[in-house]
C-alpha cells in the first residue's frame, strides 16, 4: 500500500478477491502442469531397483499433473463465472474490443511504447490493449486448448463411456488425426504458455517500475494506484 500513499490520486479497486485468488492458484497450477507435463514427455532417470510396486514415480508425476489440471479447470470455470457477474475488468480478457478502431490505434501506441519509441504509455485502469490482446490469445485460448486436449488425453485413460471420453476424446482424436498428434499439440501448448508466462512476468515487473500505474501490488491487493495525476 505504500505506493498508494505517496500519490494523491485515489486508488481504484479493480481486482476482486475471486480474481486475485484465481490468478495465483492459476499461476501455481500452470507451474505444476508445466513441470509435470515436461516430465511426462521426458521422464527422469529410471528408478532402477526394487519391485515396481515399491515405486510410483511416474504415477505421482501424472497424478500431480491431473490434480493441477483440475485446479486449472475449476479455476477457469470460476473465472468465467466472474466474467459474467463481476465488474467490467473481469470481462476484459475474454472480450477485447477488436471491432473498435480506437482499440487498434491504442495497440499501436503501446507497441511504440514497448519499442521505446515514445517516452510514455497511456494510463489504464484495466489492461493496456496490447496486454489484453496477448492475454486473450496466449492465455485464454491456449488455456482452453490445453483443457480440451488435456481432457481428451485424460479420457483415453478413463475410457469409453466416461464423460471425458464422450465429450472430448471421441471427437478430439479424429480431429487431430490420432492420439499421438493430440499429445504433440498438447505438448506444444505448454511451450506457448511458457512463452506467455515469460513475457507476462517480465512485462509485469517492467510495468511496475516504468508505467504510470501500480501493477504487481494490484494483483495482490486488488487496488490500482497511479504514479501521477495527469490525464492521458
Amino acid at each position: 500500500m505504500s505506493v498508494a500513499k505517496i500519490h494523491t490520486e485515489e486508488a481504484i479497486y479493480v481486482y476482486g478477491p475471486w480474481i486475485r485468488i484465481w490468478h495465483w492458484t492459476q499461476a501455481f497450477a500452470i507451474l505444476v502442469l508445466g513441470v509435470t507435463g515436461y516430465l511426462i514427455g521426458a521422464p527422469p532417470e529410471s528408478v532402477s531397483s526394487g519391485e515396481a510396486s515399491d515405486h510410483f514415480q511416474m504415477g505421482y508425476i501424472r497424478y500431480f499433473h491431473f490434480c493441477a489440471a483440475y485446479i486449472l479447470i475449476i479455476g477457469f470455470v470460476v473465472r468465467i463465472w466472474r466474467a459474467i457477474v463481476g465488474n467490467r475488468h473481469n470481462r476484459e480478457i475474454f472480450l477485447p474490443p477488436v471491432w473498435r478502431t480506437s482499440f487498434w490505434s491504442e495497440v499501436w501506441h503501446e507497441i511504440k511504447w514497448y519499442a521505446l519509441v515514445i517516452p510514455e504509455p497511456k494510463k489504464y485502469v484495466g489492461h493496456n490493449p496490447l496486454a489484453l490482446l496477448a492475454m486473450h490469445i496466449m492465455y485464454v485460448w491456449t488455456t482452453i486448448f490445453m483443457i480440451i486436449t488435456g481432457l481428451s488425453l485424460y479420457g483415453e485413460g478413463t475410457g469409453m463411456g466416461t464423460w471425458q471420453h464422450t465429450f472430448f476424446t471421441s471427437w478430439v482424436n479424429p480431429l487431430f488425426g490420432q492420439s499421438q498428434d493430440v499429445h504433440t499439440w498438447h505438448h506444444l501448448g505448454m511451450w506457448m504458455l511458457i512463452c506467455f508466462v515469460i513475457t507476462h512476468v517480465y512485462v509485469a515487473v517492467r510495468e511496475d517500475i516504468m508505467s504510470r500505474q501500480s501493477i504487481i501490488s494490484s494483483m495482490i491487493s486488488g487496488w490500482r494506484t497511479f504514479k501521477d495525476n495527469r490525464s492521458n
Binding site: P43, P44, E45, S46, V47, S48, A52, S53, D54, H55, F56, Q57, M58, G59, I61
Partner: peptide
C-alpha cells in the same frame, strides 16, 4: 504398466 507407473524404464 506397473514399471511405467513406478518410473522404471529401459534406457
Amino acid at each position: 504398466r506397473p514399471h511405467f507407473d513406478a518410473g522404471q524404464f529401459v534406457e
